[in-house]
Amino acid sequence: MPSTDPSNQHSESRQPIAPGVCLPWQVVSREWPKIEGDADLVRRVWEELDSLAYTYIWQCLLSF
């Protein structure tokens, strides 16, 4: 089934997406305004929360 949602096209770089990641920071940060202040903090919080989405689906697969 082809993906129709553009946010699903993050594999366009042909790089496999790392474990722990659903929507990579590089993809989502391109859609945001330029980040002022502590950009690393914003990235870290995004990645922590994105990893929860990752845990959700893989735990559905593994534990349920």
Binding site: S3, T4, S11, I17, Y54, I57, W58, C60, L61
Partner: peptide, 20 residues
């Protein structure tokens, strides 16, 4: 991971809709 969310989960559940 994308496959699990987009294809697998809609097939194995009664609730989740498939892409499109």
């Amino acid at each position: 991971t994308g496959y699990l969310y987009n294809v697998w989960l809609p097939r194995v559940t009664t609730e989740v809709r498939a892409q499109g």
